[in-house]
Design a protein around this nucleic acid. Structure first.
Length: 905
RNA sequence: GGGCGCUUAGCUCAGUUGGUUAGAGCACUUCGUUUACACCGAAGGGGUCGGGGGUUCGAGUCCCUCAGCGCCCACCA
């Protein structure tokens, strides 16, 4: 492939699908060491991630690129490191979300509700939906470049995982950790199902506090009580006061009359009641309030439910029966007012419990549900993190995790939904329970054939909690499970630490005896360009598909990775993605340049030195060759260290800067010069190739598409060139190439770095002068250089300096010291080096003085600072090397200052 | 009521064993279409690192404290 055939602009649109198809068809996403295949070697270390399964009916949102970018980076990095790498993909049945979606669709197309359709048909319908649209999200995940082993794709409701769910339920049940019973739970009236504590969100809202009278039976006296939910008065079974409260002590043990209903209920004493809050008296509604429920238990109070499943007042609500909870609130208050029981109302800010899904107000209600007893599970989960079996990144989330598990409550796992894993419990007419791994045909206790299965399904998170091992075949001891479990990293958002991560840990330990992963990496949430939470109502939704269409997948991925740090939220907007699109294009064009350089090599003229021989030829390298190679070694070390410590953003940033600033802006420009010379040409191309190849390898986990594409072209170009040996052990695709390792010892050729930095400074100063003096870039300048002890270096590098700074080589004089100061020249001073640019006639040199004075002033301020520093305790207490470095700097500035002073005389 | 995070250039953010002129992208100014790239290049301008105190030879980085913003957890009617 020659330059003409490669377009100037990287065409990600046609490249990405082609590259992905190539990877997938090539089997590159599969672990190279597969326990199901002959030749399996158990001693090879696996690296495993199970994907946080997206909702099967979901569509790509901006959160997906975040986790895919990170997990794919982790996966690709380890694959390139030689691990037998497996990223298990899959989807979640997402009970409520999916059911709602299908219900909505059903209503629209068929105008029937799910109840009208019936359970069996509805579930069938949902499966249809899943088959039809389930691949939408996985294809979108593919588009992000995810290198998952799609042959191992799983679904939480598929046969194997359903078996796992049933096994897990039964084991917990047999252990006595699962129980069923009426408890106060959070009820979602719209969805008509119980939800767990975690699914309730509390929002601060303006509400009204209603003050009213609880009349003492047979008396004109009353106890004032306040409530936010007057309709719950219907379910009151006591009024509680503090035992020490002088105001109400006399009423303890007496009866009060429930407004409107006229029931008599006791006045009780309980220390829970705070005397200095509200009226100091508390109405007790055990059926609809968690605290009241607890108090009722202490005092053996009856429990009255007044709401039905739709949150309408039930038969216990007397005349209000059938009213909606909020209508009842108004009506009962009006009636109480009429009865003279009302004291006052006042505005009040309080926390309102709302359903995480849909946002409706959730009601605490008594209901028959299934629970998992969490205490022992939580303890094991705590220990695993405490003893270091599991590490959480960033560490601060460990505290959050501990805090939650330390205060854990039993988990309500039953949901009154149809889409999900049905609870594997059957009842006979005598209400014997049969709990079974296989669907039973008769009651285990009485043999009755008339058994019916529990109507409820399990909380979606119950099956997700098994994900790291259920996807690998558990409860079967499959080869996959034996080799790939426990998995390595669990990467997900901090927002589901409790929902998912904690439960996977607890269930993993419970069922497999092992922590399901050794590291939890938590990423932050994606916010919009100015840091607002993304929501449909704000209208700031960012569609990743649009971003990919416009800027390419690599650009989006790089944006996600760079500038974000573990556990912190990230702002994303099109501008960032655009600048990273430019980066992809930069890589493309750097590639074009290198390929072009290879194509320029003349087969006849070049010896076929092999790679090893070239490696030994450092002595023949130019300063620039050594410099870029030395910087590359540092880069490799830094990137390795950063990836190991999960600083992916930093790693990406460093590679970016190396490619753009060091390689493209400096080395490539120098290479253009070096390639003009037959003697340095081949070596230059070899350096270009080796450095650029390393860059592509380093970058591949970040921006897989463009690196793979360019690398392919590069490889082809090399293989057809006289330096083909360089690529002779390269694999077919970059995705399976080895990740770079340092090739030289630390600190290799450090002196070259300093030498090159001096050249850079000189070149910059000359360019600066040109800019300041408004000298046309095309104008070649003459220069006299007094180089002092750098004379040999500058003489050797004169061609390079001339080329980079736009000097005329034939008018470039470099001497140790000039015999006399050139007239009519602008002077530049860098340390001991003085450069004179004759500018007579072109510019007015009279006004050159301020420039030099400014520089002198600057140098002097440095001298002052450094002298102060070096005369302080710093000189005695700081590491010697550091002190020496500062001394050297001081000498440099002194040189500069002194020379500038002479200039100014 | 507890806990956590953030506060660094006009904007959005990096800056992990404390090391001495604090970085990037975008935006801005000037110049430039030199055969990798104008999705580019060159040269610039711009920051008392939220305030105060402390530890240290040395603090954006560690400790204390205050302030503002945000998040999580929590049973006060």
């Amino acid at each position: 492939m020659t330059k003409q055939e490669l377009p100037k602009i990287y065409d990600f649109k046609s490249t990405e699908p082609r590259i992905y198809a190539m990877w997938e068809a090539g089997g590159f996403f599969k672990p190279h060491n597969d326990p199901n295949k002959p030749g399996f070697d158990p001693s090879i270390k696996p690296f495993v991630i199970t994907i946080p399964p997206p909702n099967v009916t979901g569509e790509l949102h901006i959160g997906h690129p975040m986790f895919v970018s990170i997990e794919d980076l982790m996966t690709r990095y380890h694959r390139m490191k030689g691990f037998s790498t497996l990223w298990v993909p899959g989807t979640d049945h997402a009970g409520i979300a999916t059911q709602l979606m299908v219900e909505r669709e059903l209503l629209k197309t068929d105008e029937v509700t799910r109840e009208e359709l019936g359970r069996e048909k509805f579930v069938a319908r949902t499966w249809e939906w899943k088959h039809k649209y389930g691949s939408l999200i996985t294809n979108q995940i593919r588009r992000l470049g995810a290198s998952c082993d799609w042959d191992r794709e799983r679904f939480t409701l598929d046969e194997g995982l359903s078996r796992a769910v049933r096994e897990a339920f039964i084991r917990l049940y047999e252990k006595g950790l699962i129980y069923r019973g009426p408890r106060l739970i959070n009820w979602s009236p719209g969805l008509k199902t119980a939800v767990s504590d975690l699914e309730v969100e509390y929002s601060e809202e303006q509400a009204t506090l209603y003050y009213f009278k609880y009349m003492i039976a047979g008396s004109e006296e009353f106890i004032p009580v306040a409530t936010i939910r007057p309709e719950t008065i219907l379910g009151d079974t006591a009024v509680a006061v503090h035992p020490e409260d002088e105001r109400y002590k006399k009423f303890i043990g007496k009866k009060v009359i429930v407004p409107i209903l006229g029931r008599e209920i006791p006045v009780i004493a309980d220390e829970y009641v705070s005397m200095d809050f509200g009226t100091g008296a508390l109405k007790i509604t055990p059926g609809h309030d968690a605290n009241d429920y607890a108090i009722a238990h202490r005092h053996n109070l009856p429990i009255i439910s007044v709401l039905d499943k739709a949150a309408k007042i039930n038969e216990n609500g007397g005349q209000y029966q059938g009213q909606d909870r909020f209508d009842c609130r108004k009506n009962i208050w009006a009636d109480m007012k009429a009865a003279g029981l009302v004291i006052k109302t006042e505005p009040y800010t309080t926390t309102i419990p709302r359903s995480q899904r849909g946002g409706e107000i959730v009601e605490p209600m008594i209901s028959e549900q299934w629970f998992v007893q969490m205490e022992s599970l939580a303890k094991a989960g705590l220990d695993a993190v405490r003893d270091g079996s599991i590490k959480i990144v960033p560490e601060r989330f460990e505290k959050v995790y501990f805090n939650w598990l330390d205060n854990i409550k039993d988990w309500c796992i039953s949901r009154q939904l149809w889409w999900g894993h049905r609870i594997p419990v059957w009842y006979c007419p005598d209400n014997h329970m049969t709990v079974s791994r296989e669907d039973p045909t008769q009651c285990a206790a009485c043999g009755s054939k008339e058994i019916r299965q529990d109507e409820d399904v399990l909380d979606t998170w119950f099956s997700s909690g098994l994900w790291p091992f259920s996807t690998l075949g558990w409860p079967e001891q499959t080869p996959d499970l034996k080799y790939f479990y426990p998995t390595t990293y669990m990467e997900t958002g901090y927002d589901i630490l409790f929902f998912w991560v904690a439960r996977m840990i607890m269930m993993g330990i419970e069922f497999t005896g092992k922590a399901p992963f050794n590291t939890v990496y938590l990423h932050g949430l994606v916010r919009d360009e100015i840091g607002r939470k993304i929501s449909k109502t704000t209208g700031n939704v960012i569609d990743p598909l649009v971003l990919m269409d416009e800027f390419g997948t690599d650009a989006l991925r790089f944006t996600m990775l760079v500038g974000s740090t573990p556990g912190n939220d990230t702002n994303v907007g099109p501008k960032k993605v655009e600048s990273n699109r430019n980066f992809a294009n930069k890589i493309w064009n750097a590639g074009r340049f290198v390929i072009n350089a290879i194509d320029g090599l003349d087969t006849g003229k070049h010896t076929q030195a092999d790679n090893g021989t070239r490696k030994a030829q450092h002595a023949t390298w130019s300063l620039a060759d050594s410099w870029i190679w030395a910087k590359l070694q540092t880069l490799i070390r830094d990137v390795e260290r950063q990836i190991q410590s999960f600083q992916y953003g930093q790693a990406g940033q460093q590679i970016y800067e190396f490619i753009w600033s060091d390689f493209a802006d400096w080395y490539v420009e120098i290479a253009k010069e070096q390639m003009k010379n037959e003697e340095t040409r081949e070596q230059t191309v070899v350096t270009l190739v080796r450095v650029f190849d390393t860059c592509l390898r380093l970058l591949h986990p970040f921006t897989p598409f463009v690196t793979e594409e360019v690398w392919g072209h590069l490889r082809n170009a090399i293989l057809e060139s006289p330096i083909a040996d360089i690529a002779k052990d390269w694999p077919d695709a970059l995705i399976i190439a080895r990740f770079p390792e340092p090739r030289e010892p630390e600190g290799w050729e450090e002196s070259k770095l300093a030498d090159f930095t001096l050249i850079q400074e000189l070149v910059r100063s000359i360019r600066n002068l040109r800019a300041e003096k408004n000298i046309a870039p095309s104008k070649k300048l003459a220069a006299n250089i007094s180089a002092g002890d750098k004379v040999d270096l500058l003489k050797q590098q004169s061609a390079m300096i001339a080329a980079l700074a736009g000097l005329d080589s034939s008018l470039l004089v470099i001497q140790q010291s000039l015999t006399e100061k050139p007239e009519d020249s602008a002077a530049i001073v860098v340390g001991s080096v003085e450069i004179y640019i004759p500018l007579a006639g072109t510019v007015d040199l009279a006004n050159d003085k301020p420039r030099l004075e400014k520089e002198l002033k600057e140098a002097q301020s440095h001298i002052e600072r450094l002298e102060k520093l070096l005369s302080s305790d710093f000189a005695n207490k700081a590491p010697a090397a550091l002190v020496a470095k500062e001394r050297e700097k001081l000498e440099g500035y002194k040189d500069t200052a002194q020379k500038l002073k002479t200039q100014l005389k």
